[in-house]
Amino acid sequence: MAPMKYEEQLKDKLEQRTIEPSSNAWQKLSDKLDANESKKNNKGFWYLGIAASIVGVLLITTMINNGNTDITEPIIVDTNKTDLEPININTKDKIVTVDKETPFNETEEVASENNTIEPPKKQSNNKSALKQKLNKEQHKLIPNKTNEMVVAKNLKETSKETIIKPLSFQEQKAKEVVVQIQTMQQTREVTNAEIDALLNAAQREISFKKLYNENTKTIDANALLLSVENDIEIQSFRTRVFEMLKTGYNEVKTVVAQRNN
């Protein structure tokens, strides 16, 4: 469909036409463009803000992490340089005190059990058995010597003195007991009961030493409570054993009496 002649005429005439827009048209367009740009900028700010906050959070977390390591690392370095030896000494002291304490309880229990369970034997027991027992008790009384030697080697001279002093007291007691038994053996035969009595006496002295603080002239309440509780337990055990023996004896007695009937 070819364009018609009049259409070309129309086109020419219309193409030459221009219509002036209203005076405020540009202002409207300009305002619209401004609003659009501010919108875009706001969007940009939003994205920028979000990005900045994410970066901020990341920075803070990394700083916190770094800060922690920064704080801990110098402490490690310091301890290596200066605080390491005192700390070691302290821990070793603790180890030593633990070693010191545990054997006492064991010996106490063993001694008391010896008192109660084992019925008093006659003096006809041979000396070798007594010696073995003595060695055992002595070994229990004197806490792990080899360990202490190793620990003591590592410590400074000052700390050595502090550790050796309480040890020497226990050793002294143990030696005293041994000497006493030996002297008794020279004159006459020693019974188990006598040995137990001597050991108990020594233990009581040691435990009193533990309870009583000479420097402050006070008694450690916790240690006292512990010792009392131990005594109660032992007593109850003792009474239980006696009860059992009593009932057993009564049963045997009645059986024998009934047999006669």
């Binding site: 036409r17 221009t18 219509i19 827009p21 209203s22």
Partner: peptide, 24 residues
Amino acid sequence: HAPKMLSVCRYYINDVHHAEEVML
């Protein structure tokens, strides 16, 4: 370009104000 473009919009739209709106 606005005067010419307003004329073009006017080809299609009777009301010149609407034509101007379309042109903007």
